[in-house]
């Protein structure tokens, strides 16, 4: 191809084409961020496993964990993932009100999860089983707390994007942001499955 004009025609000429490219690019960047975040969780899991028997004479999982509450937390988070899925379907169909409603349900479920987690944490601290008590509890609070912090960020993000939907409608930039929020939210679900299977289940067994 010796004709330079042919090189020029390889440029995306219409604006729409460029925009689609940009959203794909942002999605890829966000996937890479999630992988990086996954490493953080992986190392927190590893740290937890290393010190999970270091009770230092303090309480262990059998006395501290309450599987009923954990089951409730799990259900809330899993259902919030489903409701976010419904929101995504509504977004794809361009149904703004439905999307907002499902986002609101997702928010409520996420907030309820967080409420249960906070009550668990305060309960443990009240019975002198706070993060300072032992290596096991330091790792427990940090791992579960980091996940909780992510959920908090996700909740704030849901509010911000719901506001954007209200102000701007389902424009392509807003839809692309909702897509990335979806990735984030489902990612937190997967991490919680890990927490359930590595922290709570072996803890009570």
């Amino acid at each position: 191809m010796t004709d330079i004009a042919a090189g020029a025609s390889a440029l995306p000429s219409s604006g729409a084409e460029v925009e689609i490219d940009v959203y794909e690019e942002k999605a890829l960047g966000f996937w890479i961020y999630l992988m990086s975040d996954a490493i953080i969780f992986a190392l927190l899991f590893a740290t937890y496993v290393v010190v999970s028997k270091n009770f230092a004479g303090g309480p262990n999982g059998q006395t501290l964990f309450d599987l009923v509450r954990t089951f409730g937390e799990t259900m809330l988070l899993l259902f919030s993932s489903i409701t976010f899925g419904f929101a995504s379907v509504a977004i794809r169909l361009g149904k703004q009100e439905t999307a907002l409603a499902w986002l609101a349900v997702t928010f409520v479920l996420g907030a309820a999860f967080l409420g249960l987690e906070i009550s668990e944490f305060t309960g443990m601290i009240a019975q002198d089983a706070g993060p300072q008590r032992s290596g096991f509890l330091s790792a427990f609070f940090t791992l579960v707390g980091t996940h909780g912090l992510h959920v908090t960020m996700g909740l704030i993000w849901i509010v911000i994007l719901a506001l954007q939907v209200l102000v701007k409608g389902l424009t392509p930039p807003v839809v692309s942001r909702l897509f990335r929020l979806g990735l984030f939210w489902h990612f937190l679900d997967i991490v919680w499955i890990g927490i359930f299977s590595i922290v709570y289940l072996p803890g009570v067994l």
């Binding site: 290393v50 010190v51 270091n54 993060p131 300072q132 032992s134 290596g135 330091s138």
Partner: peptide, 21 residues
């Protein structure tokens, strides 16, 4: 930082810390 600020026991010499980690 959590060890230093909040007195946790990830890497301390007592209460179940693990420096090698």
């Amino acid at each position: 930082a959590l060890d230093r600020i909040f007195g946790m026991h990830f890497f301390t010499n007592e209460a179940g810390g693990n420096m090698m980690n």
